[in-house]
Design a binder for these strands. Structure first.
Lengths: 220, 220
DNA sequence: GCATGATTTAAACATTTGTTTTATTCCTTC
DNA sequence: GAAGGAATAAAACAAATGTTTAAATCATGC
């Protein structure tokens, strides 16, 4: 967590991300960041004007590194099937949210994203356009290819929400899942297994929804 | 929101739930509660010792009314099929989290639950044993009946997490879903449609997972 | 070597906020 | 109707916290 000296500014960025993720914006104090980064409180305001700007800088950094290190087409073979693309998408999402190198696992930056979903900060709205919307569109494209039927994209959006929802739920509810079912707690060891499960489950979900498109009837 | 006079204590309970849900524990100030409840600040400490005890009282009330008003077997016909029981379970979950009479919709108590998942308070742990674990077990039972194959319950737990995850995601990410896809924003009007969708999607997911149990092979 | 600007530090400031104190009012009961 | 406790109100308190100030230190270019 606390590494080599590095520059003051870098040390602040390094620890602030973890602390913001762990405690949320309001609960995070400039003084705690200063202490963990071994830096004077005023240095934070000097380098990043105020607490809110520091937070915005963190958010930008978190999204950028998360999406560049784990792109949605991560580890895909050439000419992948839409099913394979969905698997890569889900896997990347889990890595981004849960792995130590991604957004930092349980106590780290993955939780910062979860917090933003619950109560978006002004700085978050920019991330929506720059990262999240294109990412969602990519997923809808994949789903459309899996369904392989003429179908308006709006009908596919709920599928995308359900898939993303499963992934993000693991990030949001990590503490509670850990308490209630330690085996399924999202962490480095379970990552691949959980991603695989969500993928299989979602393929089934898409198939079921797809069936209601061809034959617009009630399922049992 | 601000109704008749009622008693001081009741007025505090009524507005505090909404405010805690909207802003979270730390961001909620005793003074704001006092103002909205048209009550003196000291009255809050008088009736509920301190802020944390007030919060614990709210949490207890929220879980109790949520689960009694919308039980998991809500509106079920006699001798329901396991599929129907799943539908009722999902529907009750949506009503609990999203409807005005339940945990209070977007700005209300549903968000309070979402916050607890993300960062459980000490008071929340009691709710786990009293409400959440039995509720989860009920869902696993339903899934087991749908799968209708000899299968250890641990294998079914991820299904339960995926289903609950979808429901809760709508509560957690309501603000962002509202921004990105207003049509699917969880609210009183969409409630039934969203619940129906999650139900169909989940039935498909269970079927897909079920298939991997009988024939332990890879899906495409 | 020094002068200038960037960086860091310690201290102080101003505000917010949970809580307590003390006095006053209200209500029940004898 | 008076007494006594419960409830409410206004004010004060103490701690936490984001920010600023002003001085000290460091680094760089001449």
């Amino acid at each position: 967590m606390d590494e080599q000296p590095a520059s003051t500014k870098e040390r602040i960025l390094a620890v602030a991300g973890d602390i913001f993720g762990e405690k949320g914006f309001k609960d995070t104090t400039i003084r705690l960041i200063a202490e963990r980064a071994r830096v004077n409180v005023a240095a934070i305001n000097y380098h990043f004007r105020d607490k809110e700007s520091l937070y915005a800088a963190i958010l930008e950094e978190v999204f950028h590194t998360g999406f560049t290190r784990f792109p949605a087409d991560m580890d895909l073979p050439p000419q992948p099937s839409p099913q394979q693309r969905l698997r890569a998408f889900v896997r990347a999402m889990f890595y981004r949210l849960q792995s130590r190198e991604g957004w930092g696992g349980l106590a780290g930056r993955g939780r910062l994203i979860a917090r933003e979903l619950l109560a978006p900060s002004p700085a978050f709205e920019a991330m929506l356009d720059r990262y999240i919307k294109p990412h969602r569109d990519m997923l809808v494209d994949i789903i459309a290819d899996i369904v392989a039927l003429p179908c308006p994209r709006e009908k596919l959006l709920p599928c995308a929400i359900s898939i993303i929802g499963q992934c993000i739920y693991y990030a949001v509810a990590a503490p509670v899942i850990g308490l209630m079912s330690p085996v399924n707690a999202p962490n480095e060891h379970n990552l691949e297994r959980l991603a695989e499960f969500v993928w299989v489950f979602s393929l089934g979900g898409i198939a079921a929804v797809s069936a209601t498109i061809t034959t617009p009837k009630e399922t049992p």
